[in-house]
Structure formats: C-alpha cells, structure tokens
C-alpha cells in the first residue's frame, strides 16, 4: 500500500523536488507551504506521516506539532530542521514527534522513517479495531 505523506515546508522548491522524489518511490504526497494550506490539507485527509519543517515564517513547527497532535493524536510526525539541536529534538519527541531529522536529509533515511510511520499507524489502527470488537463482544455478553 503506498504511503500517504503530507510535506509542510515554506521552501517551495524544496517541496517540489522532494515530493517528486518521494512519488518516484511510490508514495502519495501532498504539500503545504503555509500554515493555512497545511490545515486545509489535514482536514478530511488521512496520512501515514507528516514531514514538518521546524521553522517557517507563518508558523512555529513545535506549535504546529502540538496542534496536529491535539486533532490527530495518532498522526506520525517527522520533524525536519536546518539546525537539529539536542534540546529541540528532545522537546519534539516529548510532544509526540515520531522522529527528528536535520536538513539536508538523506532520502533513503527519510523513506525508511516514513515506512516505519505507516507500520506504526497500522498497528495503532488494528489495535483500535481489536479493542472495539472486544468491547462489543463484552457488552453483548458473548
């Protein structure tokens, strides 16, 4: 199953080239260069992973991560940044980011993390479905 990814970064040429490379690797990619377009892209769409730039003009990546996690707690977010300080990495992981990568990123490492994100999300979805079935069965007294 192709991985569905949302790429959020204000560098439009970065978005264009990276999304094309990811599509060549079989992924389905949507891009957003502003906070507003990121919010629109999130509404009503399901993704296996979001790749999010930490520093953008109209949004702070950490604030965006918090907002995503409130609305989509199971969403797997990989943060990308020009400067990967240990502090920023720890803060991002504490807030629920799946991983943290420094720019320029290696496409193979990024692809691997996206595949892991998809697998992690599938486990969460399957567990939720199993819990639901178990809940129904216990209420029905079966």
């Amino acid at each position: 199953m192709p991985e569905k990814v949302l790429l959020i970064d204000d560098e439009k040429e970065f978005l264009t080239n990276l999304s094309e490379r990811m599509e060549l690797r079989g992924m389905q990619v949507k891009t957003a260069a502003t906070a507003d377009s990121a919010v629109s892209a999130l509404d009503g769409n399901d993704y296996d992973a979001i790749v999010l730039d930490l520093q953008m003009p109209d949004m702070n990546g950490i604030e965006m991560l918090k907002a995503i996690k409130v609305r989509h707690p199971d969403m797997q977010v990989i943060l990308l940044t020009g400067h990967a300080t240990v502090e920023a990495g720890i803060q991002a992981m504490k807030l629920g980011a799946m991983d943290f990568m420094e720019k320029p990123a290696d496409i193979d490492s990024l692809t691997e993390k996206i595949k892991k994100a998809q697998a992690k999300k599938m486990v969460i979805v399957e567990k939720r479905a199993a819990d639901k079935v178990s809940d129904i069965l216990s209420h029905k007294g079966w």
């Binding site: 560098e11 040429e13 970065f14 080239n17 990276l18 490379r21 020009g82 400067h83 720019k103 320029p104 990123a105 496409i107």
Partner: peptide
C-alpha cells in the same frame, strides 16, 4: 542549510 536542502533534493 535551507539552500543545501533544496540543492540536495
């Protein structure tokens, strides 16, 4: 770093 990131991709 942003310049390098675009060139890299």
């Amino acid at each position: 770093k942003n310049v390098f990131a675009v060139i890299n991709e």
